[in-house]
């Protein structure tokens, strides 16, 4: 199962609820404003590092770069994907839950 989050974790609790209500082994993709949750050095870093122990996490690189950050600013273990990678993730999972 793929979970997608597109809201900033500093504004909405979408990422928090997503991590709380998703199962081990699932995939979580952060895009649009949710990419701020994938960055090193924020208050959320520990939460994301914890989630990485049981879940696969992805972030859409074009949204990172658009916001003035680079791939090296992303928490290690969070995989960066391009648009084609986003499509592959959606295609390979049976269901997608969008945390709007």
């Amino acid at each position: 199962m793929l979970h997608t989050v597109n809201k900033s974790p500093f504004e909405k609790n979408s990422l928090e609820s997503c991590l709380r209500l998703s199962k081990e082994g699932c995939a979580v993709l952060l895009f649009e404003d949710a990419v701020y949750g994938a960055l090193k050095g924020t208050q959320l870093e520990a939460t994301v590092v914890e989630a990485l122990k049981s879940k696969k996490m992805y972030v859409l690189l074009p949204d990172i770069e658009a916001r003035g950050m680079r791939a090296e600013d992303v928490i290690s273990g969070v995989q960066t994907v391009d648009y084609a990678g986003f499509v592959d993730l959606v295609a390979e999972k049976a269901t997608v839950q969008a945390w709007l």
Partner: peptide, 18 residues
């Protein structure tokens, strides 16, 4: 609870999110 909700989601064929 958290685990029950996660299970329910995992059992679905189609999820529509609002």
């Amino acid at each position: 609870d958290d685990a029950q909700m996660a299970d329910l989601m995992a059992q679905q064929d189609i999820i529509l999110s609002f």
